[in-house]
Design a protein around this nucleic acid. Sequence first.
DNA 1: AAGCGACTCAACCGCTCCAAC
DNA 2: GGTTGGAGCGGTTGAGTCGCT
Length: 248
Amino acid sequence: MVRTPCCDKSGLKKGTWAPEEDKKLIAHVTRFGHWNWRQLPKFAGLARCGKSCRLRWMNYLRPGIKRGNYTHEEEETIVKLHARFGNRWSMIASNLPGRSDNEIKNHWHAHLKKRFQNSSVSNEKAETSKSKHHSQVESIQEKDSVEIVDPFQNTSPTTSQTQTPDASPSLSDIFCTIEEPAPDGNGNLVMDDFANFMDTYTDPISAYSWTELSLADISYFPGELLAPFVTETECFFPVYDAQLWVLS
DNA sequence: AAGCGACTCAACCGCTCCAAC
DNA sequence: GGTTGGAGCGGTTGAGTCGCT
């Protein structure tokens, strides 16, 4: 299911992510955000390229990511959106909270594509293939009851690049996908004590060269972590040289 | 029980886009 | 306007798993 770990020429690790690496990445992004994916592995102590870290976070570790079976409703939504947008998986994913574009893409190729094609084939027996496929797509669009969220029209200046959860995720939300080992028991984390975990796997703040954090960077932060820095009207965050950055 | 092909899905690769200079 | 670097996207890969014979 996963690739054999190996190292490339530059010494960066490739392949399967170890639980230890996941912990480091979660700890770092949760604590400091992802202001620069390229630099992140260096500060997080990961022998990975930034791209790999980003992918792992976005597709697997990000808070709110749903694992497991797709509901009939979700599949229906994917089919409808694919009929409308084609292979624009990120667009489709933006309409399916908790699902990554990569996961949707995989699910489409593994299940829905066949199903969709099969239904097309059976329909073609009754009608000509071209017009039928076209009408099928059209009928999907006509009957489309899915409320399409266009990320390009629905962005705020501070969150344009990041899908912001509806509400601040709780710690349990953050780790909901990794607290319980999966049936196959591979690569999943069990965290009994978040505080110890954070202390163990993140460097002291004093050791960091802090950089600016944007709202997008903290959009994944659990509310409990943000609480000390948030008032009714302002959100403070510690940044370089012990400045306080007023976010609102 | 063993062999083998199909399936699954995490991860890599290469490309494009966009902002900063 | 050209160059550069980072982020994001979509296509593809390939090892593990499943299920059939």
